[in-house]
Amino acid sequence: MVGIITYGAYIPRYRIKVEEIARVWGANAAEISGGLGVFEKAVPDYDENTATFAVEAARAALARRSVDVSEIRAVYVGSESHPYAVKPTAVTVGEAIGATPVMTAADYEFACKAGTAAIQTSMGLVASGMMKYAVAVGADTAQGAPGDALEYTAAAGGAAYVIGNDDPIAEINETCSFTSDTPDFWRREGEDYPRHGGRFSGEPGYFKHVESAAKMMMERRGTRPSDYDYAVFHQPNAKFPQKAAKSLGFTAEQIKPGLLVPRLGNTYSGAVPLGLAAVLDIAKPGDRIFVTSYGSGAGSDSFDITVTEAILDKIDRSRAPSVESMLNKKKYLDYAVYARHKGKIKV
């Protein structure tokens, strides 16, 4: 069955605390951290962007398992911060992992769910027999305008998945999606920062799509929340996934290992792929994982995943850094240096 052959993650080492951002803008840090459930977020280095995250994550995946890269026939990178407006990030990833030139490639953009859309496309190409392996990446250097609510959470990082049929470490039993035209978050061409519908984002955006896709998945599989060991939901803040999980019937214990946003921020297209990577870092054979992403605009992709015996003997998880180890390896920046890192100071 089609599934995950190997996976890799990347989180940059710089962080800024929410209280430091609040200090600059005269906001109440305790209220913001309490409301969002986010305490610090990952910040890219000067010489990092979505393409470098995608390459590092894909190389981490290939370090864990020996995969014949000439059999990788597709690379898809999902992001809302592709370094070029025109020129694919996916070709840089393909070149850097040695998979070019006999492969197809494209970039995806669907707010925060472009990474899971890339996984779905890869599943289709593999399941149809068109290719042995496809690589799907979700990565972002998320942008939030200075002083905007998004600035407290917009973070950086990504994860990569090699999708195939051949002894997967986790089988993807099914995927389904729920999509509609909902203007809850957008960025127009040529604009530096996105805009959002504020409180409007929650109800008709996040909750409607996440809960509809999640319920559809459990209906199709005939499962209940208690059938799963772990659940990963899109995490623009800690409050939304906790509320959605609770109303669907998942417990706090099921979502905790994949809930990285309090220490990482929202890595947009990287968020669910990184949450799933954190779960795979600790998963055992037989574990069942429920995954539902969300992208503004809007849509949700749901996945039902079962971890196989191959996670013990077909990959060596220790050959690439775990999500937990990257979360713990950090250096704090003050707002001024952070603004320089993010290119917010124009000279």
Binding site: D47, E48, N49, A51, T52, V55, E56, Y84, T92, A96
Partner: peptide
Amino acid sequence: SVFRVLDAEGADGVIHYGTK
């Protein structure tokens, strides 16, 4: 080795990636 941006030809030019 890590994969990083080496430099870029201004805001509208090519981005040079490589190894650091």
